Simulated scan of single mutants.
Amino acid sequence: MSKPNPIEVQKHLSGVDYPAKRDDLVRTAERNGAGEDILAALRELPDRTYEGPSGVSEEIGG
């Protein structure tokens, strides 16, 4: 599976209050109508607290 576009991921994370845990990111993306590719990428992130959008993009961009 290819990695989702980080810009698309951030669109679906609109409204996240950082710092945020992985599960918070997944829940927000689900509420914002993210596709399965984005949700799968978020679920695969290390289970830690993310300080901001750039940290999430770095992990997904890998």
Rank of each mutant, 00 (worst) to 15 (best):
P19R: 12
Q10A: 10
V16T: 11
I7A: 14
A20I: 09
V16R: 07
E30A: 13
L39W: 01
P53L: 13
E8C: 02
G55Y: 06
A40F: 05
H12S: 06
M1Q: 11
D47I: 00
G52N: 14
D37A: 04
I38V: 15
K21L: 08
P46T: 09
A34M: 01
S14W: 02
E44S: 12
V9F: 02
D17F: 14
D47M: 07
G33K: 08
D17Y: 15
V56F: 09
P6D: 04
L39F: 09
R22C: 12
S2N: 06
P46G: 06
R48G: 07
E36W: 03
Y50D: 04
N32R: 12
G52T: 00
D47C: 09
D47T: 07
P46C: 11
V16I: 06
M1S: 15
P19W: 12
L25N: 13
K21I: 06
S54I: 11
R31Y: 09
N5W: 01
R31I: 01
R27L: 15
E58F: 02
P19E: 12
G35V: 05
G52A: 05
V16D: 06
E58V: 10
P46Q: 02
L13D: 03
E59Q: 14
Y18L: 02
G55I: 12
S14E: 13
H12V: 05
R31E: 12
L45F: 07
E44A: 14
E44N: 10
G33D: 07
V56P: 03
V56R: 11
M1D: 01
I60Y: 11
Y50L: 00
A20R: 03
S54E: 13
R27Q: 14
E51C: 13
L13I: 09
A41P: 03
A34G: 03
V9A: 01
R43D: 03
D23V: 06
S14L: 01
P53H: 15
H12F: 13
K11Q: 04
D23K: 12
S2T: 03
D37R: 08
E51H: 07
E44Q: 07
L45G: 08
A34Q: 07
P6W: 01
G33H: 08
V26S: 12
E44T: 05
K21H: 15
Q10W: 02
V9R: 01
S2M: 01
D17C: 11
M1N: 05
E44F: 06
Y18D: 04
R27E: 12
V9P: 00
K3G: 05
P4Y: 01
I60A: 15
L39C: 00
R22N: 14
T49G: 12
D17K: 15
Q10N: 13
S2D: 09
R27V: 14
P53F: 10
E58R: 13
L39K: 02
D17N: 15
G55W: 11
R48L: 02
T49C: 06
G15W: 10
E36D: 02
